[in-house]
Structure formats: structure tokens, C-alpha cells
Amino acid sequence: MTEFIIIMLVKMFVIFGAVMLTMTYITLAERKILGYMQIRPGPNRVGPWGLLQPIADGIKLFLKEDIIPDKASKVVFVIAPAMALIPAVMTLAVIPFGPAVTIMGRQVDVYMADVNIGILYIFAVSSIGVYGIVLAGWSSESKYSLLGGLRSSAQMISYELSMGFALVGVIMMSQSLSMVKIIEAQKGVWFIVPQFFGFIIYITAAIAELNRTPFDLPEGESELVAGYFTEYSSMKYAMFMLGEYINIISVSGIVTTLYLGGWSGPILPPLAWFMIKLLAVVFFMIWVRATYPRFRYDQLMTFGWKVLLPASIANILLTPVFMKIFGYL
């Protein structure tokens, strides 16, 4: 028992640390890639190629004055960022970064837990994140924050549906809710091929869920200044950002697991394959950000309910037909 606890604790620290490190460098990568796409160098002052930039940013955010608006409801205002961050970290628990490896004679899985209802767990946990945003918007007592919070709650609820439906296709094909089983089911062909529509729907809804361009309305700078975190500063602001970027990693991890075959791949070790695929998905999101403008609020809702949701339901209906034709059943 003690051994189990020690292993879990070590794994927790390693995974959390690794994810935090990846996340900080994803912020830099985002700025660099955006920079190159926009014919400018991006951050290049702090360290070689700007490599120390994320650390400088972190220190800056730590040392900033922490302002709580006078009229804000203080308790909620303080709790909200944590409510946005914690669920994001919790989803990491079920993301399978790699298969079991042998360290010091012990079999150790490179993931926290293989829950047999992994997908449901992710949905359950990530839905809690909405509360953080809504409460942040409400408790700030600022009109911009309120509008941002409302926008984002409506958006997240609408897109969560299509997201869930899109995954049903994958679950049908793998006949399991466990992340590890799903990876194993993709031994022959990655689910991106048979579930291509599902993949498109999922990634669209996921980008919307992450509040990223073209669905970045809750924080649409030109409209709502910074949306729900307009009034936040210092570490509380950083916590929203942390949550957002960890969510990017976990969503990319989910996409990798469910559609891109997870850790499987030739020659390179499984963990490397997983990271390559994950970063490719992150790169895709950054690319979309450099290319697309922002939807209008009503168009966003129309798109979610009238296009994405019917499409995801159609995907569920077509999957069994497809499976029958190609002999999965």
C-alpha cells in the first residue's frame, strides 16, 4: 500500500511538472508561431530565441499587485480562478501519455489512472470549469465581465453537447469508455479515418469549448475588453491563463488518444509519439488562431445548435452503418 501511494505521488509530481513545463512553453510556442505567421519575430529578448520569456512572464504575474475590485463579491471573486484551474488539472489524471514502462523492476503506467469510464470522467470534470468562468464574470461586478461570463456559459453548454455526441462514434467503435482501451482499439487504423466527421465536429467543438479563435467571444478583446477576467490581475489572472493552457493540453491529449491512435507509432518510444501528436494538435489550434476572425454571438449559437449538433447526431446514426459495411461488427 505504501508503495502504491509513493508511486502515485511521484507520478503526480512528474506528470504535473511535465505538463506545467509543456504549458509554459506552449505559451511561448504560440507567440513564436503566431509571430512567424505574421511576419514578425515574436518574443526574442529574454534568453536565446526568447526561451526564458515564459519564466519572465510568470515572475511578472507573481509580483503584480493583486487588485480586488471594491464592489466585487470577494469570496466568489477569489474562488472563481481556482474553480477554473482545478478541473483543468483534474482532467490530466486520465490522459494516457504512454503505456506501462519498467522502472527499477516495477511496472509503472505513464498515466495516473485508467478509469473504466475515462471519457465520462473527462466530461464531468471539464463541465465544472464553466462555473469558474461564470462566477468570475458575475462576481467582478463589471458589465464587461458579466457579458463575457454569460457568453461563455451559453457557449460552453451549447458546444459541450456536440462534443459529447461526436465522441459517441468513437465509443461505439472501441466499445469502451476507457482511454487505454480506446488506444488499443486503434491498433489497425486510427479513428481519424473511420470517424473523420466525428473528428472535425469534436475539434471544432473543442476549440469552442476552449474559448479560442474563432470562438473567443467570451474574451473577445475588441468587444468585451477581456471578457470574464477583465477585472482580474496578478496571480488570479495567471490562474485563468494556466487553466486555459492546461485545457489546451488536455484537449489535445484527448484528441490524440481518441482519434490519432494515442501513443502508438513506429521506431520512436510511445511517449515521444504521444507528444508529437499532441503538439501537432496544439499547432493546429494556433494556426487556426492566426487565420480566422471571430464569430458574432448569434452566429456562434446558430452554428452550435443548427449545424454542429445535427451533424454530430448524424454522425452517431451513420457510424453503425459504416461499421457494418467495413466489418467492424
Binding site: 505574421q38 511576419i39 514578425r40 479563435t213 474563432p214 487565420t291 476572425p293 471571430r294
Partner: peptide, 15 residues
């Protein structure tokens, strides 16, 4: 472009 959220265009125009 920036107003409606397309950020890259701005830099091309500036060039």
C-alpha cells in the same frame, strides 16, 4: 481585421 478578430491581416497591412 483586428476589430472582427482576424489578427494576422494587420501585420501584412503594416508591412
Amino acid at each position: 481585421g483586428l476589430d472582427i478578430g482576424a489578427m494576422s491581416l494587420f501585420f501584412y497591412c503594416m508591412r
